[in-house]
Design a binder for these strands. Structure first.
Lengths: 205, 205, 205, 205
DNA sequence: AATGAATGAGTGTTCATTCAT
DNA sequence: CATGAATGAACACTCATTCAT
């Protein structure tokens, strides 16, 4: 149990540093200073610096999956209105991203200039968010709630972009991430995007 | 003139490499191999590696400003319809980003993990796009075309995100960046966002 | 007694590894993996890695001394013929080296690139073999069996070299080290060297 | 040309250090101190530490081949007596080993505990000497100069061992390596080994 | 102006040893 | 006694930058 604590400590400190300085500018020295551990200790828990990074993102990915499935479990899919379903998705995503703003920064800011493995890990979370949006769109079109001429992939891409950007915006504006802020932010996103997505009659429900 | 050629060569090669591999993974060795020049030559034209990066982005920024002012000069601000003005903005931005997909990659992907100076240079272009959106929104509200309860900053942030993401999406989908692709893409963005921005009567014009 | 077992286990595993990989490439991790003990346990029985190495060689040295004295005790020094005495020396040495091929590898292959202490321990066995050869030569000259113009030191050096090399050769050729192989090998060494050492009349005895 | 000088300097200093301390105890720091160059300079000429080692041995190997072919070119193979041919081989080998005592130390002392590549490079010279001995033996048997019941491989192994050991012995005894010393040493080796190799009538020639 | 050999501070990683449990 | 997590000095190697030619 102590060991797990240690590993988590390293992950927590690394996350903070990666978020602030990125992968390359974060040195092993920074991490051990932050975690107040010895140089060698890191290598008892992680194969190398890349391994820390990948572990971090995979942890975040697991948390995200749990958050999404919890959110869906809490609603009645039979009666929920399309726009409210959309709103819930946005809200869940924002909550998750703001609960872990460092991961949000890392995913947002880590670019193409990473070794293949890290790149892949970084994009996994993003692409999963996109995939869910794609699924929702297909269902919405099938149920006659979403306009038929929408380019699903492109729209999903833009919505993912808008969500991440909003989370980034909240951080930048030093929004606290509490319920009120998230609700306001969610409303703004929904107000901006819903009219372009849903058919008028669905919107009026 | 020979000298200017040389400088441009270095910039062109660096841009390509920065776009593909990022700032940190791109080594001076890569650049001199690509440009087929000697190691020391680089330092005749640039103070250091960061200087190349900043020059690159400032060049892109200058081009962007020119593109934007040209686009505005070409239209009649008196008669243009609000949505068409919006469409033009999106189109100009997409054209610019796709004319220089490497710069697009760099701006999109270079994250917080850069030295302060580079970070600033990277964000400059992005923030300028945002600023113009903010101005347009304020004008639109004043002229009663844009709904009044919009959060201008946040909306601008999301639109910038959507634009960059769309350009990234086009690259990924290997769209050629020719007129037809850009027009389609522009329509999709406008169709998604315009209903959430403009008042119904403006939209119908 | 349990403790002694443990110490022997560490020595046995270390010997195997040192023989295969040498001193520097053999890590403490390798030894504990091989011996299936905990990291710290090693330091309960040995001061450090060097101490294991020295213990190993000193054990081998003790065994060698015992083997040599046993062999001499078994013969009648009064009646044995000079060449047979030589043959016995070679045989005893080969038997010993092949009984413990790992030690043979270690002594043969561990070179000058060791810390002074280890170097000394490694050479002790070799030099002892040489010393005995020197003594034998002196006796042989005194008794008029060995040609007088022999350079004793040099000859002893070469004979030691030949003996070790033969043992190495046997290992390499996957000779089993059983009696028949050793006898053949002994004959070959004696046939090669004896004519150059002994006076013709001694040889004919 | 300057560059070649530099490479040779690094090789010379490394050779000295490898001979004295072995591969593992010789650090890059030692080499740069000895050669009075900067850390990075080494890596301009060699891929890594192992590459220096291998280059060293391959250089020695090339020199050895040249020495051997020169020696054979200088004699009349038709008229030379078998023992004199043997003596010439021994002399050539000793001359070579003593001309470069550090290489001699390295080959003699580097053991099995090296990475595969280094091991192979180290053994190459040794095995070449053995191969030549094997060839000579086969010729000698065919011409009825060498006794037929000799085990060629084993004898070659022992002769190689004796030769290297003799060179090592000369170094240890601080023999100067000049002609007189080499001649004496050669005679001693020939006197010790020739009677066990050649048939009596060949020896008397 | 152009070159590319030389530089050396800085980096991730290893591994023998220690010590609290 | 046995354990194995923790340690940190030591290591090979990198790479942006300099500077003599």
């Amino acid at each position: 149990m102590k060991a797990e604590k240690r590993k988590d400590l390293i992950l927590a400190c690394s996350k903070k540093l990666f978020a602030k300085q990125g992968f390359y500018r974060t040195q092993i020295s920074d991490i051990i200073d932050e975690a107040r551990i010895a140089r060698g200790t890191i290598y008892q828990y992680f194969k190398n610096k890349e391994d820390i990074f990948v572990s971090l993102l995979e942890g975040a990915y697991a948390q995200w999956e749990q958050a999404v499935s919890q959110a869906v479990a809490a609603i009645d899919l039979k009666t929920i209105k399309p726009v409210d379903y959309f709103r819930l998705r946005i809200q869940t995503t924002l909550e998750f991203l703001l609960a872990d703003p460092d991961i949000c920064s890392i995913v947002l800011s880590m670019g193409f200039g990473l070794p293949e493995d890290l790149e892949k890990a970084t994009r996994k979370l993003e692409s999963k968010i996109r995939d869910i949006a794609v699924n929702d769109f297909m269902l919405g079109i099938h149920n006659n709630h979403v306009r038929k001429n929408i380019n699903i992939d492109h729209a999903a891409e833009m919505i993912a972009g808008a969500a991440f950007r909003s989370a980034y915006y909240m951080q930048k504006k030093a929004k606290t991430g509490d319920r009120a802020d998230i609700d306001t932010m969610t409303d703004e996103i929904v107000n901006l995007l819903a009219p372009g997505i849903f058919l008028p009659e669905s919107l009026k429900l």
